[in-house]
């Protein structure tokens, strides 16, 4: 038996009604080991206007580089209470902010490990199918060898790498169109 996947449709403007109950902006609770980091940014449309009815979801490994998922069979410890999932709506300024721990490195293509990264899904009215992107960490030497970053034209790689704002706080924006258009992936 072979079927085709159901078509995606936009979340529309009233997404909050169904999705807010699972909002998680603190991905790692107290006691979860790892380097603490807050990531903030804005979601901007093709006119540079804030998208105030958007939502991002985060998926990440723990600080040791292990996903809380049965298909990750690496011999690394899981952390109690850490699922690695975030759901953060944008506010009236198109801004979002969440806190977590920096993930460890996970296996990648060709038997090489990937640079630390968060996986991101972007949802909003006006988007018929959600977009997939990634957040990498600034000044991480592993970025140079990351298989996915290397697929991105060098002049656009910066859109995937957060910038340091202050101690423990990074900035990363989602720009839908224009000069600094964020890189989105097709997996």
């Amino acid at each position: 038996m072979s079927l085709y996947a159901t078509a995606n449709q936009t979340v529309g403007p009233y997404l909050h009604i169904g999705l807010t109950w699972l909002n998680r902006s603190q991905i790692a609770g107290k006691g979860v080991p790892g380097e603490r980091v807050a990531i903030q940014g804005r979601l901007l449309d093709g006119d540079g206007e804030p998208v105030n009815d958007g939502l991002i979801e985060i998926w990440q490994a723990n600080a040791a580089g292990r996903y809380a998922h049965p298909e990750d069979t690496q011999k690394k410890a899981l952390d109690k209470g850490f699922r690695g999932f975030g759901r953060i709506p944008t506010d009236s300024r198109g801004a979002f902010r969440f806190s977590t721990v920096k993930p460890g490195r996970v296996p990648g293509p060709g038997g090489k490990v990937q640079a630390p990264h968060l996986v991101v899904a972007v949802f909003m009215r006006g988007l018929l199918k959600h977009l997939a992107t990634r957040i990498y960490f600034p000044d991480d030497p592993a970025n140079r060898e990351d298989a996915l970053l290397k697929l991105v034209p060098p002049e656009r790689r910066g859109t995937l790498i957060a910038r340091r704002r202050s101690r423990g706080t990074l900035e990363w924006n989602v720009v839908l169109q224009g000069k600094n258009e964020t890189v989105f992936f097709d997996f």
């Binding site: 998926w59 490994a61 298909e71 909003m124 996915l148 169109q177 258009e181 992936f185 097709d186 997996f187």
Partner: peptide
């Protein structure tokens, strides 16, 4: 959709452990 869709082509990427797992 006019101002909210990417205008650059999506970067076709291999599926890694990061995408083959997900929140449960």
């Amino acid at each position: 959709t006019a101002k909210r869709h990417p205008t650059q082509p999506l970067v076709i990427a291999p599926q890694t452990l990061s995408e083959l797992t997900g929140p449960l």
